[in-house]
Design a protein around this nucleic acid. Structure first.
Lengths: 185, 185
DNA sequence: AATTTTATTGTACACTTGTTCATTAAATAT
DNA sequence: ATATTTAATGAACAAGTGTACAATAAAATT
C-alpha cells in the first residue's frame, strides 16, 4: 500500500525546513518548535512521525548511504591506475562520495552530533569492505572477519576524519593517492 | 591560586551524583534537574560551572585519558613476546586500558553520546601513535604524518568499536593477539 | 577575630519538550 | 458523489531548560 499523500507532504515540508535550518545552525541546536514553525507543520504531527529532530535527519542519511552503495557498484572507474595488490578500488570510492556530499559530511563529522551517525556510516563501509576482505585477503586464514573489516573500515574513516579536520583541503583524488601510499608502507 | 573549597565540594557532589545515575540510566537521559536534586546542589550552581550534563562527564573523561597516557609510559610490560616489526607495543596497551575502564567505555561507545567523546579518545590515541609513526615507519618518506597516524589510530579504534559491539566478550589479551595477526596479513 | 570576597541559594521568568485528546479536514474507498 | 478512514490541527498539560538577580552564607584575606 502507498503512503498517504498527507504524510508525504508533511515529511517533505519537514525535510525541507531541516535542510534550510542546517545551512544556518548546527543540528543539535535546532528545536522541534522552530522546525515545525518553518515547515508549517503542527508540533504534534512532528511527534507522530519522529521522536526527535535527529530521527528526521537519519531519514535523509539513508538516501546518502544509498549513493555510497551505488558508487560501490561501479568501482574500477576512477582508480584503475592506482591499484596495488592491497588496495580495493571500491573502497577508495568513498573519498569521491564524501566530496560529493561535503555539506552533509560536515554535519556527520561535527562534534555535537550523536555517535550513531558515525556508526551508520561505519556499518556501511564495514559491510562494503567485508566482502572483499573475505575474498582477497583471508584465503583459509581463521580470523574474525568482522574484526578485520572493522579494522580496515575504520582506518579509512580515520583518514576521512583527518580530512574533515583539515577542512577538506585535499581533493578526493589526493586522498586516494594518500591511501595507496599508506597501504604500501 | 587554589580552587575555592566550595567549588571543590559542589563539583565533587555533582560528579558523584552523575556516577550513580550512570549506573541506572544513559547519559543523555539524565536531566540537569534530577542530577542537581541527587547532588543537593542548586540548579543555578550547576549552570555556573557546566553548560550541560555532558560537560560534567567530559571532566571525568580527562582523568581516564590521563590513565591512557600513563599506561603508555610503561609499554613493554605485557606484550614483549607478541611483537612483530609493525606492532607498536604501546599501542597495544589500549585494550587493557579499555578493559580496565569497561563501564566508562560502554558509555563512550554508546550510540546516543555526542561524537565529541570519540574525538577526544581519537585525539589521544592519534597523538600517542604519532610519535612512533614518525620514528619507526617514515624514515625520509614525505607524507602527512597526521594522516598516517589518523589512519592507524582509527584502525585500532575500529577494533575497539567491534569489541564493544561484541559486548567485550574477548579478553584484552585476545584483542592484542588479534591485532598482531591483522597487522601480519 | 573582623572584614572582604565570592560561591551558592532561592525565586522567578520565558521558553522548549513530550504527550494527550477532541475537533477538523484531507485523502481514500465505495 | 458520498461515505469512510485517518492524518493533521489546536489547545492544554506537567516537566525540563537556560538565564537573571538579590539575599545569604561560606571561604579567603587582613
Amino acid at each position: 500500500m502507498k503512503t498517504d499523500l498527507r504524510v508525504f507532504k508533511t515529511k517533505d515540508a519537514l525535510r525541507n525546513a531541516l535542510m534550510h535550518l542546517l545551512e544556518q545552525k548546527s543540528l543539535n541546536s535546532i528545536s522541534v518548535t522552530e522546525l515545525c514553525q518553518l515547515a508549517k507543520v503542527n508540533r504534534g504531527t512532528f511527534y507522530a512521525h519522529y521522536g526527535q529532530v535527529e530521527n528526521l535527519f537519519e531519514e535523509y542519511f539513508k538516501t546518502i548511504m544509498k549513493d555510497l552503495a551505488d558508487s560501490y557498484q561501479e568501482p574500477y572507474k576512477y582508480v584503475k591506475n592506482l591499484l596495488s595488490k592491497d588496495v580495493n578500488p571500491a573502497t577508495i570510492r568513498i573519498f569521491h562520495h564524501i566530496e560529493k556530499y561535503e555539506t552533509f559530511y560536515r554535519i556527520v563529522f561535527s562534534r555535537t552530533v550523536p555517535l550513531s551517525y558515525y556508526y551508520l556510516l561505519f556499518d556501511h563501509v564495514q559491510s562494503l569492505i567485508r566482502d572483499d576482505v573475505s575474498e582477497h585477503y583471508l584465503n583459509g586464514i581463521d580470523i574474525d572477519i568482522s574484526m578485520v573489516s572493522a579494522y580496515q573500515a575504520n582506518a579509512i574513516l580515520g583518514l576521512a576524519i583527518e580530512w574533515h579536520r583539515q577542512d577538506f583541503k585535499q581533493s578526493a583524488e589526493e586522498m586516494n593517492r594518500l591511501l595507496v601510499r599508506i597501504l604500501s608502507i
